[in-house]
Design a binder for these strands. Structure first.
Length: 478
RNA sequence: GACCCCAUCGUCUAGUGGCCUAGGACAUCGGCCUUUCACGCCGACAACACGGGUUCGACUCCCGUUGGGGUCGCCA
């Protein structure tokens, strides 16, 4: 037995990667990296009814986006049937498992009766003590059956959870559970435990919803004579209303965040902070810092809520940190979606443009709208801004003069424009704000934009003058 | 209903018996900066669920209550 850290992420491919699962994957990954161990990816597709290839691909894509590279796998349980069949046979031969010939209806009845009688367990049948030869005979008759694990009478199963401490389940509160379906295919409880043993998993880090499964899986592992891994149960993630995370709260699928303009850096940082923290003040963590500092000891026990507001703030932070080239590269798909082509533009000019709005956006998705008036001449005027700054007495004259001043500037640079406008403002004793806002609306269509001189420079003299004239003609009172 | 888990500002959290008149961050609200919007900076608001113990001393330990959550499938 070696001390190598081996962890696995074992999603079932029945849908997109949920935030909670993404966090589980992240913690497993970080734990492996921190300890120089192995991160294994295992696809639990034993439920052929619900598993799909698209879901598997989606999970792989999501992990790829987050940069959670696995060292082994992906392994598919659907291809490992022999392993589970062998395990079942052994358990059956050794008496840990028996055939249960109950019909779904009978089981349902037992459950209802137990609930009514306020019993902890419901399963009780003649098959529990049916001699093997009788059981074999029934099977040969073709009677449908499932294999059930015989939970020992009396006693308890306990383990020392890395996050929760000692957890104990009394055996008389547990029902004999099914390990294989009537078609012979293995059920999660079995395949999961068998694979963990086969893959020599040292630490099982998973969601708290698996707590009761753990007692059962430890029993399986012991019956099979396998070592029991260290278990660590992560707290759940909820939405702001303390309910299970659902569409109502916003995006809940990992890839949705990518498509909404979030950076993997921000997502990783945010996910790490739900249930884990380093100290009393650090909130910003790079991928490297996360692997450097992560430890199970600092994982929280209490449920967490996914704070979309903080994710937004983190995303803005990481966008501001991005080199301009990188920012342009990553936002390209969003421009394409908006019907704006970036290819072929002057790189220098483009960098300047992005520099103008880098600290004004919180998602990549906002970039096209914030930059559209530079990249297209089909200007969209905000009605509110137009009414407030253009449809006013005297604005026409002011804008006309603005056009003259701007048009007379030889060096169309920030400094040149600043100087020209300063002189005008001083000569006429007016406030610059009176000029700036109407001009801003005329040039950008909005009353919020980067510095007005920057806007003018990146627009160029020609377009500035044209837009000023267009605004006067279209909106200003005569 | 049975079993299991959990409980510090609105949210994420620090806190492992005295360092706590409970710290940080997001959000919110003020202010500064300023040609608008952001960014940045400064400040304010705001929490130990409740009740018993243990102790010279409890946010920290124990018990109970309440509240929340999870599981109880031939799903994972």
């Amino acid at each position: 037995m070696c001390d190598e850290v081996r962890v696995r992420f074992a999603p079932s491919p029945t849908g997109d990667l949920h935030l909670g699962n993404a966090r589980t994957a992240l913690f497993n990954y970080l734990f492996a990296r921190h300890h120089g161990g192995k991160f294994i990816l295992r696809i639990e597709d034993t439920d052929t009814e619900r598993s799909t290839d698209e879901a598997t691909q989606g999970i792989l894509d999501a992990l790829g986006w987050l940069g959670l590279e696995w060292d082994e796998g992906p392994f598919f349980q659907s291809e490992r049937g022999d392993l589970y069949r062998t395990a079942i046979e052994r358990l059956h031969n050794e008496g840990h498992v028996y055939r249960c010939f109950c019909s779904p209806e009978e089981l349902e009845q037992m459950r209802n009766a137990a609930r009514e009688a306020k019993q902890a367990t419901y399963y009780q049948s003649e098959y529990q003590e049916l001699p093997r030869d009788k059981s074999d005979a029934l099977a040969e008759e073709g009677r449908k059956f499932v294999y059930r694990f015989r939970v020992p009478k009396g006693g308890a199963t306990e383990w020392d959870d890395a996050i929760r401490g000692k957890v104990v389940f009394q055996h008389d509160t547990l029902d004999d559970f099914a390990l294989a379906r009537s078609d012979g295919s293995p059920i999660f409880l079995l395949s999961n435990a068998v694979d963990d043993a086969d893959m020599r998993v040292s630490h099982v880090i998973r969601g708290e919803d698996h707590l009761t499964n753990t007692a059962k899986q430890i029993m399986i592992l012991r019956a099979l004579g396998h070592p029991v891994p260290q278990f660590a149960h992560l707290p759940m993630i909820f939405g702001m209303d303390n309910k299970k995370l659902s569409k109502r709260h916003g995006a809940t699928f990992t890839l949705q965040f990518r498509d909404d303009g979030y950076l993997a850096e921000a997502m990783l940082n945010q996910l790490a902070l739900v249930g884990w923290s380093l100290d009393d003040k650090t909130v910003l963590f790079s991928h490297e810092e996360l692997t450097q500092h992560f430890s199970l000891e600092r994982v929280n026990k209490a449920k967490g809520i996914f704070d979309y507001e903080r994710l937004l703030w983190l995303n803005g932070h990481y966008i501001r940190e991005l080199p301009l080239e990188e920012l342009i590269r990553r936002s390209e798909p969003f421009f394409q979606f908006a019907g704006i082509e970036l290819a072929g533009r002057d790189p220098e000019w483009l960098r300047g443009l992005f520099g103008l709005v880098q600290e004004r956006v919180r998602t990549l998705k906002e970039l096209p709208e914030k930059l559209s008036y530079f990249l297209t001449d089909a200007l969209e005027y905000e009605e509110k801004s137009v009414n407030k700054f253009l449809k006013k007495e005297g604005v026409a004259a002011l804008l006309r003069k603005t056009g003259e001043v701007a048009g007379a500037v030889e060096a169309f640079t920030i400094e040149g424009l600043e100087e020209a406008f300063r002189q005008w403002v001083e000569a006429e004793a007016i406030k610059f704000g009176q000029i700036a806002q109407p001009l801003r609306v005329a040039l950008t269509g909005s009353d919020a934009s980067p510095g007005i001189f920057e806007v003018m420079v990146y627009l160029g003299k020609e377009r500035c003058l044209r837009r000023i004239d267009a605004a006067i003609e279209r909106f200003c009172l005569v």
